[in-house]
Design a protein around this nucleic acid. Structure first.
Length: 575
RNA sequence: GGCCCCGUAGCUCAGCGGUUAGAGCGCGCGACUCAUAAUCGUUUGGUCCCCGGUUCGAAUCCGGGCGGGGCUACCA
């Protein structure tokens, strides 16, 4: 594995921009978290990454709610955009930018795109005819109208058939082009079940989509006007989608759009991202995204989250969990247990504690503790030697010595012929890691990191360095064997920690500080850049490896074991 | 209404035509003691939703049920 294998295509990953009227909740945090983990992993393997999130602010309701709060729409949007920024800073997301759709850089470009589509005839004036619900001030689809017998589903009053003049995007022109993109995965829709949904709907045929709204008497001045026509605003959805391009549509950043683009989102807004947006891009002569990934939802303790139940898991509750179990534990749980597939996932406290103890306290944290502790105990905290990580016949003698030690105390190994090949195992783990990252399968990505930890635990049990340590004076070669064994454990864990970093940047940086590993350009800042790509960092017994004489402090346990009987954290009531 | 997905061990899921159906977690037992009562080993645990069909052979393909869920273009 050399740096020449690193994918040099710039990597651009986006989350949806979030509706500012919502309070940041687990859904926003989850989508942005998986983007963060993917972005950090891609940076780790050496790619040039741009990670974007932001807020969608031009919705009608924003201006309405602003009024209710005695604020201008812009003031209100700013207050709420700040809440998202705070929440994301709290989650330690490494987004390279945060776009607000009210910013000039967005509105200017978005207007240009619409103008271009108008000039080309991809956007044209037409009549929109539909069932209007005057009480809700919205149009209903034919299906919904029919189901409710052409009465308002809310008030029961009759719907009105209304015709409105609107600008339409000629989505219908791009049906066959879209079909081609999906047929050979030029645009990859993930997971597969979602792709089927999109294909199924696509088969029913595409219509023109309205991309403007008429400005009504007394409407607040909010949103972007149609460039050609002051009496229309650009429909907020259409404008919002443009953020992915507007933010990087400049000389410095255009390489990201021309690189590999991944859009992440929840399943409810897949259609816009898989169909409308790629078609718009194609019409503009721009490359479509490579991957459109729609994850499912979190549910809370087995129950769907809804406004009426008021059981949304908001940022405050995540903060309470972070306070008790550490932020990285929250990131780990959400990333590995989340609804990346087509099925919803449950945020259940009992499950959280189970995963926390199994993966973090007992596995990762404990393994790092026991190795650190043995180095402290047997070698006064200084790594005494290096080793090639080969154990067992015919390449190494250290394991044989360890087995002799076990034999001499009457505890011979069941299978005395086992071999352990650290470098080979780690190469396989990092290869799997890369492959999983390419598929956005973050759970198996992190599991391949954890497989190294399991390997180390297994090796410790088998080789029993603690037994060997008691015979340093009586058994020939025992000191050398013990040094080799502990070096290999520490070095393997160092590499595992690199692979775990994207999910748990703070905790892994904590370990590197305790072990004096200089992987980051600024050891005091978990978010600083790596000094080298993974292919170099993860080399066994090489430039960035643990060295002979390197001091390792035991440090505090990274994840203290949790008591399942303690009550679940509760969100602090906040303003 | 239309289209789609899912139903496999207590839980989350993998397997999607071929030997006695798997993993992780949980539970039980054994071993060990460097470590956070952690770890390692091992057992238990399954009419692979039901009925029918195709096949030498089906969890896997086909048809029909039952149950759960999703999508169905103007709140975002």
């Amino acid at each position: 594995m050399g740096s020449d294998q690193t994918n040099q295509t710039p990597y651009y990953i986006t989350t949806p921009i979030y509706y500012v009227n919502d309070r940041p909740h687990i859904g926003h945090c989850y989508t942005t978290l998986i983007a963060d983990v993917a972005a950090r992993a891609q940076r780790l393997v050496g790619r040039d990454v741009f990670f974007l999130t932001g807020t969608d602010e031009h919705a009608e309701k924003v201006s309405k709610t602003a009024l209710e709060h005695d604020k201008t729409p812009m003031e209100w949007a700013t207050i709420n955009a700040e809440r998202f920024k705070d929440a994301f800073a709290f989650m330690n997301f490494s987004n390279d930018d945060f776009v607000r759709t009210t910013e000039d850089r967005h509105t200017t470009k978005a207007t240009q795109y619409i103008q271009q589509l108008l000039d080309q005839g991809d956007i044209e004036l037409g009549d929109y005819e539909g069932w209007y619900d005057p009480s809700q001030e919205e149009y209903l689809t034919e299906m919904v109208a029919k189901e409710s017998n052409y009465n308002s589903p809310v008030t029961g009053k009759p719907l009105e058939k209304r015709v409105e003049q609107n600008y339409f995007f000629r989505l219908d022109k791009y049906q066959s082009w879209l079909e081609d993109q999906f047929a050979d995965d030029t645009i990859t829709i993930l997971p597969g079940a979602r792709k089927n949904e999109v294909l199924g709907r696509l088969k029913q045929g595409l219509m023109k989509v309205p991309v403007s709204r008429q400005i009504k008497e007394g409407d607040p001045d909010w949103g972007i006007k149609m460039p050609c026509d002051d009496s229309h605003r650009i429909y907020v959805w259409i404008e919002a989608l443009c953020n992915y391009l507007t933010t990087v549509d400049n000389d410095q950043r255009t390489k990201y759009w021309e690189g590999e683009v991944t859009h992440l989102m929840a399943k409810d807004i897949l259609w816009f991202h898989a169909i409308i947006w790629p078609a718009m891009l194609h019409a503009m002569g721009k490359q479509p995204p490579k991957t459109v990934y729609a994850h499912a939802y979190w549910i809370a303790e087995g129950t769907k989250m809804s406004k009426s139940l008021g059981n949304f898991i908001e940022i405050d509750l995540l903060a309470a969990y972070a306070d008790k179990y550490s932020l990285d534990a929250v990131r780990w749980f959400l990333t590995t247990q989340g609804p990346l597939g087509a099925n919803d996932a449950d945020f259940a406290h009992a499950r959280f504690v189970e995963v926390y103890n199994a993966d973090l306290a007992n596995s990762i944290g404990n393994s790092m503790s026991r190795v650190g502790n043995m180095v402290a105990k047997y070698f006064e905290g200084t790594v005494p030697a290096t080793c090639n990580g080969e154990f067992g016949f015919p390449d190494g003698s250290s394991l044989q010595t360890a087995l002799k030690a076990l034999e001499s105390v009457g505890k011979p190994a069941d299978d005395p012929n086992r071999t352990f090949h650290f470098q080979e195992f780690i190469t396989k783990a990092t290869t799997d890691y890369h492959d999983a990252l390419e598929r956005m399968d973050l759970e198996s990505m992190l599991d391949s990191a954890r497989s190294i930890v399991r390997f180390v635990d297994e090796f410790i049990s088998y080789s029993a360095p603690f037994t060997l340590a008691k015979q340093l004076d009586t058994l020939d070669d025992a000191p050398h064997a013990l040094r080799s064994i502990l070096y290999s454990c520490a070095e393997a864990l160092r590499i595992a920690s690199l692979l775990l970093y994207p999910a748990m940047p703070q905790k892994m940086t904590e370990l590197w500080n305790a072990w004096n590993c200089e992987h980051l350009t600024d050891q005091s800042n978990p978010n600083s850049a790596f000094v080298a790509p993974l292919s170099e960092l993860a080399q066994w017994n090489s430039t960035h490896s643990i060295k002979q004489g390197q001091s390792i402090t035991k440090g505090d346990p990274l994840f203290m074991r949790a008591d399942a009987n303690e009550p679940a954290p509760v969100a602090e009531p906040t303003a």
